[in-house]
Design a binder for these strands. Structure first.
Lengths: 208, 208, 208, 208
DNA sequence: GATGAATGAGGTTTCATTCAT
DNA sequence: CATGAATGAAACCTCATTCAT
């Protein structure tokens, strides 16, 4: 208890090499770890180590673990949304553009599923943080919803409940990512999977 | 004079006096807590308190938290499977029977989503435990798959990839449970939701 | 992060020897440490080590450090109060009984001063905890106040503001405990100190 | 053309422009915070923020927290001492001058009590720092002691132990600052309080 | 069967201090 | 002068697990 501070060597270490901004490095490490192991299981220390720095440095950039987590999710959702918007932008039939999105997601590693994260982190996050994540998620869905609405207005497809369609579409894409207990998938190739998903979805909502 | 201790009748108590066996009580409490807060966030003490006993008692019945969790999940999956099988058994058109399953799930409180649970508990469970949970999940899916296979054999519906259809079906039902950030759902009533889901699914897989 | 629990040797260690009840042992150690170093400076670990056990054991008995601190103070105040009551009870002139109390306190090691403790712990304690401590302190003062009131009623001393007198008395006794920077005290012996304090107090309140 | 950067006049700013020197600003903030929350509870960051600057700047002026604390206390004691000396200097009877000091202290917000500070900071300060604080405290007491000695020499009051009297006097004044748990004080007004304290003190040391 | 007592390990957060700019 | 960035150390508290009764 009685500890007189004796000249320790603390403080910022001497170094010169410029790298990526520290907070980006942290977010990157955090994203990977949180998505692999969930909110509770990943410690701030884990993130710090993965980012090549000290716990205290992580806390210098993000006041709490909950904030770091929220920003991680929000930033990821934003990236996904941007990717979707980009893939949906070309001047092609909606079917073809959706097909491209499907392929892209079947190839991506990270699932988009917020549900599980919400459950395990809910009690550790503030109401605002939960709202923030939820909104980012909805923005992501909205990017697809809007493609439907535009196509409806343009007369390309019949009128449907666009929000429900967007969620249904993502749900089906996630089915495509499912791996059974023996490790096999429903179809042989990504293309075949995408084809089947698109068929079910398209027929389901627009008939033939 | 015959003295009765604390007004308790002598002899073996009649079955009415009996409360549920302790391990069932634990499983019940555990199910609720795990589903509300996830694996990591729920402590064995939480479960014990919710079950009205001490931690040590829980450990008397379940050797580790991981085992308790696994049994919780497996037992839940089994219950869901049984429920599905039961609803699917009457001698009615497949569409009608599936419709009933849909209604039942839209009314149920617990989501069936294992994904989130797997992520956050994976590193705390043994390989066998993970397998056990996965198998229970697949059994659940299989109960639907088999309804498809039987209907195909009977010529009631055209041949499809039954496993993929089962997963797609559950995925769409889960969409029906989605609540947006403002608390609203896609449709007004459970019936309307079920109708829309069934329409998309049925058209998607069997055309008209 | 990925840490599979491998048969560690935890839990209650095997032992047989009966000693004092654990919570008493903790309170004792805590009292000493808190009084030597103050609330903030003493860590729960320090207390645990001083009490010959683990931090976790301390937390098993006292939910938070603030609670432990509060109980420590309250129990100490109670002990002091009891001591005072006891010394004040014999059938002797008030002057003589107060003299005895003075002697007792000049010989005691612990100061009765709550002020400093309040300041440094205030922001860490709940409103109720602060009240609890304050009340225990007032009870202590009241034990002296009552001696005055009784003596006034009995006509042994003239009427005075008993509460003010009690606080003044304790304040003067604390002066007697003061050690100057060179380590010396105002008077040579405890008796001489007590005599001077009592003279000033008695004359100050009752004239001759 | 002469360009003036950001509308600032050239040359050394007139004294009106000058704000208080930075180290004074720090000391001021530190004084307030330390007195409200004690040594341990106040972080250097708290002080920096309260002073409107960064932690590093505080460290530019004060090498360690312990040094800053010591200077804070010493400077405060010095200020109190000066105030006392000033109030005691007029050519009036000692009783009247002491009465003025009493009033001044009852109105002041900061208690003079070093005891609590010593306890909680002792183990963090060097021996010299503790000595420095103690000496500043004694200087403060000495300012009163000397008033007694002068009055004794002048034959205004009988011979007494002046050091003991000075401490007793301060102790009684502190009693006047005491607030009970219900927030009330012993007397209605500051004047009434001062009158009672002075009466007890004066009678106690000089009889009638 | 059931429980009270105990503990090792670890998790989140704070903080005094340092250094390069 | 002043500051942003970084860190080692430690503090509070939680928890899965064990053992004697």
């Amino acid at each position: 208890m009685i500890k007189q501070t004796k000249g320790r060597v603390l403080g910022r270490p001497k170094s010169k090499d410029k790298t990526a901004p520290t907070n980006e490095v942290i977010l990157q490490a955090a994203t990977r770890l949180f998505f692999e192991n969930g909110f509770q299981k990943v410690s701030v220390d884990d993130i710090a180590k993965a980012a090549g720095m000290t716990k205290a440095t992580v806390y210098y950039y993000f006041d709490t673990k909950a904030i770091l987590f929220t920003e991680t999710i929000v930033s990821l959702m934003r990236r996904i949304r941007e990717r979707i918007v980009q893939i949906l932008s070309p001047d092609k039939p909606l079917y073809d553009r959706l097909f491209d999105v499907t392929i892209a997601h079947l190839q991506a590693t990270t699932s988009i599923d917020l549900e599980g994260f919400m459950r395990e982190s809910r009690s550790s996050l503030s109401e605002e943080q939960i709202q923030e994540m939820r909104m980012a998620e909805e923005e992501m869905y909205k990017s697809i919803e809007e493609a439907f609405l535009t196509a409806i207005e343009a007369g390309e497809i019949p009128a449907i409940n666009a929000k429900f369609a967007a969620h249904s579409y993502i749900a089906l894409v996630k089915v495509g990512n499912y791996k059974q207990s023996d490790g096999t998938t429903f179809f042989q190739s990504v293309e075949e999977t995408a084809k089947n998903i698109m068929d079910v979805f398209w027929r389901g909502f627009f008939g033939k």
